[in-house]
């Protein structure tokens, strides 16, 4: 069963199916997040509709691009033999 599940996740033939399921999961999660009753929150933004989804996406992009910027532009990324020279 585990092998089948992993094959479904890994095999390129199921790509379309996987995307369908993934988008369904995204929609369901956002819908659920909009519907649940939220208790008292410390910060105003926690009650904005869709805040968590937006924050997740923005966080992901921020991390990728800030990190790549530091890597390429600020010289953090170096050749593997940098310390051997």
């Amino acid at each position: 069963m585990i092998s089948k599940l992993m094959r479904f996740i890994g095999d390129p033939t199921y790509t379309r199916r996987r995307w369908q399921l993934f988008i369904a999961a995204l929609v369901l999660t956002v819908a659920a997040d909009l519907l649940v009753t939220k208790g008292p929150a410390a910060f105003f933004w926690q009650h904005l509709p869709g805040w968590n989804a937006l924050f997740g996406l923005v966080s992901c992009l921020l991390i990728i691009f800030i990190s790549k910027f530091l890597g390429y532009r600020c010289g953090l990324m170096r050749e593997e033999d940098y310390y051997d020279e």
Partner: peptide, 24 residues
């Protein structure tokens, strides 16, 4: 409920960002 849906939203949309920008 709010903690569960909130966490799942953050995580799944992080995954969306990952697949969209996989090349990077």
């Amino acid at each position: 409920p709010a903690h569960i849906t909130g966490s799942l939203s953050i995580l799944l949309f992080t995954a969306l960002g990952f697949f969209l920008f996989l090349k990077h």
